[in-house]
Every structure is written in C-alpha cells, then in structure tokens.
Design a binder for these strands. Structure first.
Lengths: 195, 195
DNA sequence: TTGCAAAACGGAGGCTGCCTCCGTATTGTT
DNA sequence: AACAATACGGAGGCAGCCTCCGTTTTGCAA
C-alpha cells in the first residue's frame, strides 16, 4: 500500500526515489504509533522525531495534517467501504444499517483523530474532497439509500446526518459503552421509518 | 454579576481588592470579545493583551481555561436554567422538550467554546463539578424527566445522552440550518416514546 | 564508472501559545 | 505615614507550527 508516487494522480511520471519511499514508510509507521498513544493531541514534530526524519521531510510529504492521517488510515478506510458493501449485500436493509452504525463506531474508536478532523472539515473545505471523506460518506450513502429504498429508513435523512450523529457525539471525549448503546438506540429510532 | 471574591466559596473573608476587581471585569469583557471573534481557537494571551492586563494576572484569576469560559458565560448559563424552568411550567411535556432542544442549540451556537470543553470534560474530571456543567445537565434532566413522567419520552434516556446528541454533533464545525433541522428531528424521533 | 542535475533531506529560525515564577507596585488598614 | 498583605505583569522556559534554503542523496546518461 505504499505508493510509489506522492499523489497517485495521473500526472506522476516517475516513481518515488528510494529514499523518499523509505521515509514515507517510516513516517506512516511512526504516525500510527504516535496517534495510538496521543490521539488528537499528537504532535507532528514528535512523529517526525520518532520516524528519524526531519520535520521538513514530513511537511514536504504531507502538507496537511489531514493528509498524514489519511495515509495512516487509508487501508482502514477502504476496509470500511468493503465491509459496508458486504453488509448491504448480505443483510436485510434495516439490519444492515443497524450493523453499519456499530461498524462505524468501532471504526471511529481507533481513528478518533482522523474522524474528528474529517467531520470537522465536512462543511468547509468542500473543495478539497479527500479520499477518506468520499469513501466514508459514500459508505454512509450506500447503506442509507439501501434502507430508504426498502422503506425502512426515513427518506429525508442524508448521509452526512448519519455521520454527524454517530460520529459527532461519539467523537467528543470517551463514551462508556452503556451510554453508547443508548445513544445509538436513539439515533436508530429516529432514523427508522414509522411503521 | 462581578463577584467580590475570587471563588465565591465559604472561605472568603475579605472582598477583592479594588484593582483585582477592575481587572476581573476587564478580563471577562475582553474574553467575551475574543471568544466571539475566534471561538475555540482563542488565545489566552490575546485575551490578556486585549484586556490590557498581564498574562500572569489572567492566570492567577482563572487558573483554568474552563474557569474563564465559565465566568464569561455564567449569566447565560443561568439564563438557560431559567428559561428551562419556564418551558417546563408553561408547555406540555413533549412540546417543552422539543422547544428546549432548540433553545439549547441556539444557546450552544454562541457558546461553542464553552460547550465544547464542557461536553468534552463530561466524562473525565468528574471531580471538578463546575457550575456550568451542573446547571446544563440539571436543565436537561428537568425537561427530560418531565417528559418521561408524562410518558412521552423513552424512560431509559439520560440527560447526558441529550447533551451528547444535541451538543456533540452540533459542536463539530458549522451546521447549516437545513441539516440542523433534520438532525434535531432524528434525535427527537429517537427520544419520543412509542405511541 | 563517473559526473551531474534533479530530487529529496533536515533542521535552524521565526512565530505563537502555554504556563510559572518572582521582583515590583498597589491597596487598605492601623 | 508606614507597613503588610495582596495583586500585578512580563520575562523566560518549553513546545508546537510551518517555511526556507543550504546540503546530501539518488539515479540516469555518457
């Protein structure tokens, strides 16, 4: 999953230079480590330090905090998309939605930092459509539309509403599992179409 | 509303010294101003600067970021409590709850910074029961219990759930009014007891 | 191989913010 | 008027963000 070019866009002619690629890997590795330890508070300098790389290198490779987070969690984000598809194919629409919310929560629990900044940047920055945002919103849309077409979810709910509700309230501070259950129940209850 | 003693606790014998009181007022004034401009990002140094006061003075008076926010919004928080009581007395239980959510949103809109840190500190710090937290949670409890006793709100919902849902998801970034309406509708739908 | 330009590195440095500490100034009380 | 008690304020230490640019590394081409 290590790209051989910085952007993955169509305009890369050359592969990354060997040292660049090595440092890329080190940075992502260190970032994952530091993020696990310090979450949202993680310092970029600490990450660079841990990676044994100059701060300048970090900034060259990842101009944005978000871009680093994305690199770290890219695989996980893609995995979310995959398991979303599976849910939609194998479960009943409502059950899929229910299950998906829990998948999202579980997912968010280990990716607070990314999620925080992602939801945060949901409104503004709408220019910079990052891979993660597209993917997560896409997943939400898939499972939601599926439920709506089956008539089990209210038609007016939008994917971003789902993210807000599930992500938003969960993202702030920890949530004990009891409260988590209650909150999810409330959200699901509010989304379910009246019988 | 300017206290004549730093803590308001039982142990203050003397009133604040004149200069202390003057600076207190200046600080709160400046803080309100800066908070309006910069929200959560507000810098304490900027506030001190704006107040024409040394940074040391700020820290002596408000050892904690939260304590400053509280001072700024103390009156507003109390006002929330008052209008909560009024709602409960004058409206039907469910209507009161509905209206209260909107009051809370409106309230939160101008007090993002306080709210953010408040909800954030909801779990940990449970020792330090600040005035604001008690007040806000108390208000949520009042309106919620009222609805529950009337049988129009699910019994298992807790006050902090309400804060999480309404505050949490709203607090992250801006929310356009359309989305706000949808999100509130979902939350209320999930709280309402099944008929 | 060797040479060389393109690519990448890395950290110093400028800026800002957090917070503490302590010498100095202001009060108000006797 | 004098003297504690109280309060002030900012220097200074630490850390993080980000940029800029002189130095090093790499890989292609001769």
């Amino acid at each position: 999953m290590v790209p051989t070019s910085a952007t993955g866009s169509l305009t890369d002619e050359r592969p990354m230079r060997a040292d660049a690629q090595r440092n890329y890997e080190r940075l992502v590795l260190a970032a994952r480590e530091v993020l696990r330890e310090s979450g949202t508070e993680s310092s970029l300098e600490e990450i660079a330090r841990r990676a044994g790389v100059g701060i300048g290198t970090l900034y060259r490779r990842f101009p944005t905090r978000l871009s680093l987070l994305e690199a770290v969690y890219r695989e996980d984000v893609d995995a979310l998309a995959v398991s979303t598809t599976r849910l939609v194919e194998q479960e009943q629409p409502w059950e899929a939605l229910e299950a998906w919310v829990w998948v999202l929560l579980d997912y968010a629990a280990t990716k607070r930092a990314l999620f925080q900044e992602l939801v945060d940047a949901a409104g503004r920055d709408s220019e910079l459509l990052t891979h993660s945002r597209e993917t997560v919103i896409g997943a939400a849309g898939l499972v939601l539309r599926n439920a709506q077409e089956a008539g089990v979810a209210r038609a007016e709910v939008e994917p971003s509403d789902l993210l807000r509700l599930v992500g938003g309230c969960t993202m702030m501070g920890e949530l004990e599992s009891e409260q988590q259950k209650r909150v999810v129940a409330i959200v699901l209850g509010g989304i379910r179409a009246a019988a």
